[in-house]
Each structure stands twice: as C-alpha cells, then as structure tokens.
Write a protein that binds this DNA or RNA. Sequence first.
DNA 1: ATAGGGTTAG
Length: 626
Amino acid sequence: MRTLLKPLLAQDPRFVSFYAPIFQSLTGKNLLKLGQQVHAQMALRGFEPDAYLGAKMVAMYASSDDLDSAVAIFHRVNNPSTLLYNSIIRAYTLHGFSEETMEIYGRMHCLGLKGDNFTYPFVLKCCAELSRIWIGKCVHGLSLKVGLESDMYVGTSLINMYVKCCDMSDARRLFDKMTVRDVSSWNALIAGYMKDGEICLAEDLFGKMPGRNIVSWTAMISGYTQNGLAEQALFLFDEMLKKDSKVKPNWVTIMSVLPACAHSAALERGRKIHNFASRIGLESNVSIQTALLAMYAKCGSLLDARQCFERVRRTQNNLVAWNTMITAYASHGRGSEAVSTFEDMIVAGVQPDNITFTGLLSGCSHSGLVDVGLKYFDYMKRVYSVEPRVEHYACVVDLLGRAGRLAEAKDLISKMPMQAGPSIWGAMLSACRKHRNLEIAEIAARSLFILEPENSGNYVMLSNIYAEAGMWKEVDNLRVLLKAQGVKKNPGCSWTEVNGKAHLFLGGDTSHPQAKEIYEFLLDELPKKIKAAGYVPDTSFVLHDVSEEEKEHSLTTHSEKLAIAFGLLNTSPGVVLRVTKNLRICGDCHTATKLISRIYEREIIVRDLNRFHHFKDGNCSCGDYW
DNA sequence: ATAGGGTTAG
C-alpha cells in the first residue's frame, strides 16, 4: 500500500474521484498513519472534501479507532446529505456511542433527511440498546412510508429492536406480515422467545424455519442453557453436529454450550467440547478459556480450571478471568487461595469490580475467614472504590452468621443502606439453622415467604429447624401452609457421571437398573462398615415424625447416598467420584460420606446447591464449616 | 450493515 501510494501522491490531484478510493482502501485496515498523511497532503493543497469524500474519510478514521478525527471531519464538511450522516452514524455505533447516534439521527430528521436502508439498521440497533421503543416505532413508521419495512436488513433490525425492547407481540406481528423473511429475522425472533422463557414458541419456529444457519442453532442452544435446560442444550449441540454438516460451530456456539456442561456437572462432556474447541482453533480465545475455567470449576475439577486460568494469564490480564478463578476457589471452599488470587490480581494491576468482591467475600465466608472477610468488606469501598451492593452485604451476613455471630449479622441488616432481599434473609435463615436460633429464624423465614413465596427451599429450611427442635406441630402447620400456597416441594436428586453417561437418582428411588445391587450395598454392607467406624445416624435431618428405625431407612436412601453407592460399585478403585445434588447436602450424608472416603479410600467430590465438598481420608474440605 | 455471547451471593 505504501509503495503504491507514493507515486500517486506525487501527482497533483484535483478530483474527489482521486482521493475517495484511497481513503476507501485504507478503511478497516488500521492504517491510520497513512490515512493521516494523505489527509495532511490534501489539506496542504487546500483541498476541501465534499460530502462523498467526507464520508469516506469519516469511515477511515472511525475504523482506525480515531473517532475524534471522524467527528471533526463530519462537522467541518457540514453538508446535509444522507451519505455523510450515515457515515457518522456508523462511526458512533461502531464505537458504542448509542446516545450520540440518536442525537445525529434527530438532527437528520430536523434537516428533512429521510434516511435510507443504511441508516435504519444502525438507528434501530441503538434504539434496542437504549430501550427506546417509541423512537423505534417512529423509525418503523418511517420505513413503512418509504417502503423499506420489508428490506432484509431493516426488517431484521426492526424485529430485533422489538425483541430487545421486550415487545414480542409487535415483533411477531411484523414477522408475520413480512413476505420475504431472512434467516436472521427467524433467528432474532427465536432468541426473543427464548429470552422470555417461551421455549415452545421458539422450538416451533426453529422446527418450521426453511433454512438454519449456525446462529439459529446457537440461539436455540443458548436459549436452552439460559432457561436451565442443560440436557436439551447438549442434545441439540449433538444433533447439530450430526444432522447439519453445513454449519460450522464457532466460538459463540461453544460459549453457549459450555454453561450447560457446567450446569449438569458433565465433566466428560465438557472435556470433549474443550477438545472440539481446540480442534477448531479456539484455544487462544480468552472468552472461551474463561468459560472453560468456569465449566471445569463447576464440574468439580479445580486443577483443569487453574490450567485454563494460566493459559489466559500467559497472554492477557483479564478481569473476568480473575473473577472466575476467585469465584471458583470460593465455591470449592478454598478461601485462602481466593484471597491470594485476589492479592495477585491487585499486584497484576487489575482494578477489581463488584463481582470480584462477591467471589472474595463468599470465599472468606465458606472458609470461616471471618476477620479477613470483614477487612476486605471494609477495604472494598475505602481502598478499591467499589460500592458495596446487596450481594456483598449478603456475603457478610453469611460470613457473620456461619460463625455464629447472629446478633452482629442482624445488626448489619438493619443498618444497610438498601432493602434486604432474598439473599440476605436466606443467608440469615441458614445461619439460624446452623446455630439453632428459632427466634431470628422465624423473622427471616417470614420475610422470605413474602419475597419468594414459590421457593420451596425456604419452607423446608424452617421446617427442618422446627424438626430439629422437636416442634412437630409447627412442622405440620408449615406443611399445611405449603399445600395451601400450592408450592411444589423440589424433590432432592443427585447424579453422577460414569463413562461419560449421567445417572440420576431421586431419594428412595428404585427405578435404576442396578437398584438391587445399590440397595444391598447401602442397607447391608455399608452400615456394618461405617457403624464399626463409629457412625451414628443423625436422624434430626429427617422431617417426618416417625419411628427411629423408619427415619434411619429414609436417611439411608437419600439421593446422594444412592449416587455415591452407584459410583463405588461401577468405577475402579482410585477413580475420583463426582456427585452433584440439586439441594444442600444433608448433615447425615456429610458424616457418612466422610467415613466412606476413608473406608473405601476414595476421593469423593460432592457439589451441592451452594458449594463443593471434597471428601478425602475421612475429612471434608469444608472442615465441617457449612 | 442484520441474528447467537464469558464471571454474580443463600
């Protein structure tokens, strides 16, 4: 380019047609220096650009990350033409300045410039980002008037605008009216339905659409993931690879499927997808590595998680990666590692944000680092200028509550500058259970029943507190309330992956093909061994007011015990067992698992609703602090 | 030029 330009610039050009193609060829190639040289020479010759040339120059500067110069040229040329205005609208949008785009569009309007199929998509994108549905509707009206409603780009942009402004009915109305629908219109609508939780409507469209591209598949996969339907997400990912060889998964596709592995703790599936991502050249993608980090952490493998983190660190100093690593340590109860990672992050010169502190504080609370946690809570605003939010207060309530400092926790709630939400009272309630404080428990539970009446976990928690105190009448009252409110109790279930296949167990479940074997183990072999090792069943975790013997039986068949038994029976010695439970692990299972880990010399990693428990040699990583 | 996106407390 340089050698090509030299002889050309030596001539004495007088025509726009000379400069315009030069600027055009410098656009999008990050050749700012060359662009500036040409511009300087032009100025030296006293040549003033017209609207056409001005637009080309604006485009060159904007694409070279010099928005200021682009804006300067726009104002200097100051020609009321759609062409020039389009160029500055594109420049602003490219740099994420939506407000400025809207202002320019407003000015076009005052000047009587109608805008064309190049203008509308950009303006609509800004309307979507700023949730300006009324301006969006005006643009819709205008595009109708000039006959652009069914333009491929304008149509899709309009649908996307309605989707982002949460107006699915108008999005659908327009979609139904369109005669020629681009794939992207279908995709935008599918994504909108998924965001609304309208899975069936999205599936219906996906089934009906004439041609699918990678975005269609990705929209469905990420939609399933976002709605907690991990199985469907993973299934569809496989379907895509099997049935549609034309589509090539890209980094967004991988990012959409990884949280599904994380959600269902499907470590082997996750590894396969990791290999797949490497094969298609995504190993150096920071977002992918961060998503992999989170996936491995949530699947119970801190080692793999750390490796992903180190891969990122080799090339980048990325805030999200630091946050994910800190949060990973926190969820595994490795508070001191969370703290040291935080300190490393500060040394590396990264400014922590609110997510950093939720990770750090929850790490401290899971590990009983009370004073350290309180210190960082104090520092976060004073030293790091991060304003504490409700989630940080929740962590501190948890921190104090777990440590038995209930009065201080309650005091903090009354003094915090915002309203206490479900996370605050939830932390308080579990602290009350741990430290057997009925009085505060009832206050916390009452708030929770109002704040999230549909969450069955809260009723169960209070019920357990009553049960532990032997208050069976209150337990019954609560059961009646639960029924009256129409709350469905979330059944406890656990699952484990063996040879890449997940096996799911419900409490007392006998439907598994190997149920006979599992029950023999749990009812016969195991009790002998663990009772010899000093195990006494802790029946206080059983809700029903039934005989001790019955209580013991219901304990023996808790879903996590079934999953662990299945794992022991179906894997060779030395293989780490990984079990995931949808609720909190029960205290009796916790005790039993510690003993199992010693007797059978097995490392057992249990992920419950809140955190990980690493059982090894008769101990748990949580140090019984949970 | 349009559609799909990583980390967040109990």
